[in-house]
Design a protein around this nucleic acid. Structure first.
Lengths: 205, 205
DNA sequence: GTCTATAAGAAGATAGAC
DNA sequence: GTCTATCTTCTTATAGAC
């Protein structure tokens, strides 16, 4: 990894721990193993490093959306994936998704930045809600609608159903961001949640 | 309100919007209507203002815990309140609690500080989890256990039940902190959630 | 208790040698 | 591209008059 990328990487880590204002240029440079003035050969100023992080995040988000089909525009394609699946497979998919969000190198550090800066920066506030609330919810909602139409889920208010499915994932994700030691506890609970959810709403099978 | 309290109040607002490092002493002073040096007659330094906010929060938290019986040590006393209540009353209580957390002048600004500083400060991380995850959950869990023992709720895994009850409240609370305009939407969804939850788990009545 | 003036120091950024 | 030296600006905090 060249110096320019290493600066971005160390800055991302520091910003995600302390927030923009608490990180000093000299601190980023030190982590990279250079002196602060050298850093200005790679980026115009501190703000430019931050902006580069946002750009990189936007690029990755698009790639990721395609890969995970989360917030995808066409859940009907994915519906077949979830059609007639076993509880075990549902748990596997759900846990896999949770772990991806939690551990993906870039995603997880950027989510922390969004968390820290959300009240300070309206752009971040919008990205946060879109990426971690409205996106997953609208995707899940369309999926549940299809599963209901196929008769695989009992019919119920789909908004509430989606809320009850996704909110636990969200809460445990933010919990693990804050206290990584509690991941095992979260995973255990999440698995039970998926099974129970399937029992409640998948009763039509 | 005397100057010392007004400093605390304006500092709390600013810290909750920008985080500690982004708020300058001169900015707090300006909001109060004095010059920065005058502020040092009331507080030793910037950190002392922050510490005073923490102290005040701890005081209020204890009073609030008693008042709301959230994170209370004895939910069996409260179980009678929830015993044999109508759906309407359950919604009323749930929404009331949500609105208290969301709007209480001090609570809501302090929660934003916790959110902003949680990855930076382990003390805040612990307070956050205790106040907005483990506290409410352990209280609700004990309540549901009692309602199950009374035969008013069907028997099910109580940890999952509690998670499914509380996680939507938590998610919508953090959503409204970020986007206050979405309160009406959150309340509508929350009401439907309570009714649906009661239908699922209160089926033993 | 509030002010003006100012010190002390931190952090961002530039100049210029190598 | 990296360094040392330095400039500039911003912020905290103090001194001392009123």
């Amino acid at each position: 990894m060249d110096t320019k990328h290493r600066i971005l990487d160390e800055a991302l880590t520091l910003f995600s721990q302390k927030g923009y204002a608490n990180v000093y240029v000299g601190e980023i440079a030190e982590k990279v193993g250079i002196k602060a003035p050298s850093l200005y050969k790679h980026y115009k100023n501190k703000q430019a490093i931050f902006d580069a992080i946002i750009d990189e995040m936007n690029k990755r988000y698009e790639a990721q959306a395609g890969m995970l089909n989360i917030n995808g525009m066409n859940p009907s394609v994915d519906a077949s994936v979830y059609s007639n699946i076993s509880d075990d497979r549902l748990v596997e998919i759900g846990i896999g998704l949770f772990l991806y969000f939690l551990h993906d190198d870039y995603t997880c550090r950027f989510r922390k930045i969004l968390t820290i800066e959300q009240f300070h920066n309206q752009e971040f506030s919008k990205i946060y809600s879109s990426q971690y609330v409205d996106g997953p919810i609208s995707y899940q909602k369309m999926l549940f609608q299809l599963l209901m139409a196929n008769g695989e889920f009992i019919s119920a208010d789909v908004d509430v159903m989606t809320l009850q499915f996704y909110a636990p994932i969200y809460m445990l994700l933010t919990l693990c961001d804050r206290e990584p030691d509690r991941e095992a506890e979260a995973l255990k609970l999440l698995e039970k949640h998926f099974r129970q959810f399937s029992k409640i709403y998948g009763g039509a099978q």
